[in-house]
């Protein structure tokens, strides 16, 4: 797990990377419109070498509500997390979460040809944030928030429908689960790595 005296965990650190990611998502939407054909996760294009889509697809949105519903949590979760772990670790978590979700889409859902949106990777960031805040103050609300997040993912994945959003693209809630699992794996691996460094 993250150390409380992480080098980048100073409270005064501004979440610049989060701001940049929010701005990038907004910019992509404004410049390229809904579901940019050049940046979206497109299985066929990726197979032909357009591997940047594994990352960029997460910052593309299919319509304005989709963008807004994802930008707000990014600002919130990203802001809180980046302030705690610093921009470098935050960049690590972000990239790993994006690739984790994309890996699931690629290996686990080969019938899904197109995907876009931040919410999958945001669930990865959320897990890391919850654990980090839990390390700071063992607030009883934190497990509850985690539980609600997991339940929501289970319900949506079972029904294959997003509960409260109606987007122009069909919802794909499995991506939320993939993000959540990626976040957990990230914590486990970094914790193990830290433990082995400490023991050596």
């Amino acid at each position: 797990m993250f150390s409380r005296n992480d080098n980048h965990s100073g409270w005064q650190q501004q979440p610049w990377l989060t701001a940049i990611l929010c701005a990038a998502s907004l910019l992509f939407f404004l410049l390229f419109g809904e579901a940019s054909a050049t940046l979206v996760y497109d299985r066929t294009a990726i197979a032909q070498g357009a591997i940047w889509r594994l990352l960029t697809g997460h910052f593309i949105h299919c319509d304005l509500p989709h963008l807004l519903w994802n930008l707000l949590p990014l600002a919130l979760i990203g802001g809180l997390l980046e302030q705690r772990i610093g921009w470098r670790r935050f960049a690590d978590v972000t990239i790993v979460s994006c690739l984790g979700v994309s890996s699931w889409l690629w290996f686990g859902r080969n019938e899904l040809l197109l995907y876009c949106g931040l919410s999958g990777m945001l669930n990865g960031l959320l897990v890391v944030l919850l654990v980090r805040i839990w390390q700071e103050n063992r607030h009883p609300m934190l497990p509850l928030i985690g539980l609600v997040a997991v339940l929501k993912i289970i319900v949506e994945t079972t029904t294959q429908e997003a509960i409260f959003t109606h987007l122009s693209w069909a919802g794909f809630p499995e991506a939320h689960g993939a993000g959540l699992v990626t976040g957990i794996l990230f914590l486990v691996i970094t914790s193990e790595a830290k433990r082995s460094v400490n023991s050596s």
């Binding site: 859902r109 899904l112 959003t165 499995e174």
Partner: peptide
């Protein structure tokens, strides 16, 4: 599930 296009959203 899957196929076609999908989107994730909060």
């Amino acid at each position: 599930s899957g196929g076609g296009g999908g989107a994730g959203s909060f």
